[in-house]
Each structure stands twice: as C-alpha cells, then as structure tokens.
Computed example of a mutant assay.
Amino acid sequence: MGNMAKNKSETCIFCLIANDQDKETEVIKKNKELVCFRDIDPAAPHHYLVVPIQHIHSCLSLRRGHIGLVKRMAEMGKTVLHDQGVTDMKDIRLGFHQPPFTSVDHLHLHVLAPSSQISKHMQYKFIPRTSRFVTEECLQKHLKDNAPPVLSEESLNQNEPHGKDALCFPCWNTTAMATL
C-alpha cells in the first residue's frame, strides 16, 4: 500500500471501521470486500451504511469496472435489511450522496427502511433522482453506459440543466423540496 493510501486509511473513519480499528462501531456484516454498520445519525428505523474496505473517495471515482462493486454493495444492504427483519423490500431506499453532499470522503451506500418512515427533517437528504442522492440503480446505469457518473460541480453551482450524459434525474430544484 502506498504512503498516500496508508495515510488515508489511518485518518478515514470508514477505513478504520472497515479494518476493525474503531472499537465504538458495531459491524453488522463483513466480507473480504465490504462492511456494513449502522449510520450514527439514522434517518429511518433501519439506516445502514455499506462501504468497501478499499478506500474509494466517492461515486465520482467510479468507472464502468465498478458496476459489480455497486451491485454487491446493494446486495449486502438488502441482505442486512432482510436479516434485521425488514420484509417489505418495496419500501426501501438505496443510494449514494455525491460531492459536495458527502460527509465522509469514502464511498458509502445508504440503506434505509422503511423509506416511508424517513424522518421529516432528514428527507431532503434522500430524495431519489436529485443531484444530492443518486440511487444505486441510476449509478449502475450510468456506469454501464460509461457516462460521467454525476453532474459537474460547475453545473451544480449554476443550476444549469444537464445534458444527455448527466444522471437519470431531473434537475435538483426547490420544486422537489416543496413536495416534502
């Protein structure tokens, strides 16, 4: 492991959790590639994070070759929900925040259930098809199409409509917020 990767794994909280170096976080499920644990600020009765053990900065870092990783992250999330007694798999939400809306610079999948019970004061963080929250299906589609996985920061800052290469969600705007 290079110095840069080693330094990141020593300071990134998700790297510490994934490598069993954080004694406060209870790992719910782990394999050789992924780890799942509860979100420290849950937005729903079941709110878990699935992270790769390898440090990957964010969904901006993903390419076509990462489709399988995204699928496996979603599969682990669904398995954990099932193991925790969640039976209505239609009332779940799986997705990623993209910069600048990330709080930890380590790729992580939010797994929420029931999505109908997401806290009112946190709903805005988990609205599908917005620039803030990219569903795992949408991310997989764009990785498969080899399109850029997210909007450019310039486009986000200018609130410009995005073109054919943008993610499969309408432009994020106050109309989406008004529906909450």
Rank of each mutant, 00 (worst) to 15 (best):
Q84H: 08
C12R: 10
Y48D: 03
S61T: 09
S9D: 15
K6S: 12
K120S: 09
E75W: 08
N7A: 15
E153F: 15
P149E: 00
L81C: 05
G65N: 15
R93L: 03
L60T: 07
E10C: 08
I13T: 10
D105R: 09
S119A: 14
A74P: 00
L180D: 01
K23T: 08
C59G: 00
H66T: 03
T79Y: 08
K141E: 09
K30H: 03
H55W: 15
H46D: 02
F169T: 01
Q158T: 13
D165C: 04
H57T: 10
R132K: 15
M76N: 04
R93A: 00
L109C: 02
S61N: 11
A176H: 14
S58V: 05
D165A: 11
K6P: 01
H142P: 02
D39P: 07
H97P: 00
Q123L: 15
E33C: 07
Q21M: 14
C36D: 02
Q21I: 04
A44D: 07
E33H: 14
T179H: 13
L60Q: 13
A166G: 15
C15K: 03
S152Y: 04
I40W: 09
H46F: 15
N3R: 14
T25Y: 10
C36L: 12
I28K: 14
T130D: 01
F101I: 11
H106L: 05
V70F: 01
Q98Y: 00
G85Y: 15
K120T: 06
K141C: 01
Q117G: 02
S131H: 12
P52K: 02
P45E: 07
C36K: 06
A74I: 08
Y124T: 03
D83L: 03
R38I: 01
P148C: 05
Y48G: 00
H108Q: 11
H162D: 11
I67M: 06
F101R: 08
H55C: 07
Q84C: 12
H66D: 15
S115G: 07
G65V: 02
E136T: 12
L69W: 00
K144Q: 11
M122V: 02
L62I: 08
N157D: 09
N146M: 13
L107T: 07
F96P: 08
I13Y: 06
Q54W: 02
L143D: 00
H97I: 01
F96S: 01
D41Y: 13
H46C: 05
K78G: 02
R64C: 02
E33L: 13
V111D: 07
N173H: 13
A44T: 12
I56G: 02
C168G: 05
I56Q: 02
K6F: 05
Q158A: 11
S116E: 05
I56P: 05
P100M: 07
F37L: 08
S152C: 06
D22P: 05
W172D: 13
F169M: 09
G77F: 10
L81G: 04
P52C: 06
S103W: 07
K32H: 11
P128Y: 09
C168W: 11
S116L: 08
S9T: 13
Q21L: 14
G2N: 15
A44Y: 03
N159R: 11
N173W: 10
Q54G: 01
V51Q: 03
L94P: 04
L180G: 03
P52E: 03
L62D: 00
